[in-house]
Simulated assay, not measured.
Amino acid sequence: MQVRAYAAHEAGASLRPYEYDSGPLGANEVDVRVTHGGICHTDVSLIDDEFGVSRYPLVAGHEAIGVVHAVGDAVVGLSAGQRVGVGAIAGSCFHCEWCVSGRTNLCPARDDTVLRGDRGAFADHVRASDWRHVHPIPDAIPSAQAAPLLCAGTTVFSPLLVNGVLPTHRVAVVGIGGLGHLALQFLAAWGCDVTAISTTATKRADAERFGATGFIASGEEGALRAAAGSFDFVLSTVSANLPWDDYAGLLRPQGKLCVVGVPDQPIAFSPMSLVPAAKHVAGGIVGSAAHTRQMLDFAARHDIRAEVETFPVAEFEKALGRVREGSSRYRAVVEFE
């Protein structure tokens, strides 16, 4: 099948139409006709080769909503015309120790959609290498609002399960952006007492609208120290290089700081920030196939939606620009039809 995609041909270049032949469909594979594609900052980073790993021509994209176009002979439970999503992980081996224990997101052979080179989801079709990573979308969630859930949504939802966050916990979310605005909604629906942390108070009203009952303007002198010892769990969604000891100081004894944003400098702590009160630091990534489906079900039941700006394909560069400059409120989604 000929796939019409949108590719960058060198670092930082504008996207141009690009076609390739996807080849024969494998037994476990699924072709999805894309209707909506979310833009994650990782997509922009790869287009600009910020990580030094990009290969051109590069087709980014890993938050695709569409309908099933064709399925392989071994596919179960999916049929042509069904509305589905293909997210950050489009396949895994299903025989390693991580897959057989349900932790498909830790599979060493996982198929990271955005790292494929010229086979990403900024295209009219995207192929999943395993049908178990193709997720039916609940009827209650519109396609544009569903797209960011397949990366941003599962990235902030899975740590709640992995780290045992309870409704009785006091939780803080660092950053009110593409990930943070979803984390606030999930945690509020989870039953937690939720505080939003942002550099200034400009997003206070939005944070409260997303479910925060407390707010800390971290740029104000002494604001973080005043909240020391307040939280059982702190989720950092930002890529900024934070004063990590101050954030560890926010934790209660045995509290946990989970980092899902990717700073460009090492994360360092004084031993005395962690050891005396047995505090924990953890990383977080996109959820497993099971966690992603649980997240979609939870979002549908609790009316959790990504707040999005939508753009036609003709305004792809405008949408990318909004993400580059961090001005999108709160996720950018391209409509492919």
Rank of each mutant, 00 (worst) to 15 (best):
L251Q: 02
A60H: 03
V262D: 05
S273A: 15
F94H: 14
S270Q: 14
V30F: 10
A7Q: 05
F94K: 01
A332D: 13
T168A: 15
Q265A: 15
K279N: 10
P276G: 12
A146H: 05
Q145I: 00
C151R: 00
A282V: 13
A189E: 09
S129D: 07
E325A: 09
D21P: 01
N241M: 06
H125A: 04
V173E: 05
D73M: 03
R132H: 08
S328A: 14
M295F: 05
A289V: 03
K256I: 12
D31N: 07
C151N: 04
P136T: 00
K318A: 10
V173I: 08
G287H: 02
T199E: 02
D232E: 10
G61L: 04
G102Y: 07
E208V: 08
V174H: 11
L78T: 01
Q265S: 15
A80V: 13
G38P: 08
D49W: 08
Y18A: 01
H62T: 03
G91R: 08
L78I: 00
P138R: 05
D112L: 10
D206C: 00
A8M: 04
S328E: 07
R4H: 15
P17V: 02
T35Q: 13
H133E: 06
M272L: 15
V313D: 02
V260C: 06
V174R: 09
E19T: 13
P142F: 00
T237V: 09
A201H: 11
E10M: 05
A121W: 07
Y18M: 02
S198W: 06
D43Q: 06
A80E: 14
G287Q: 04
K203W: 05
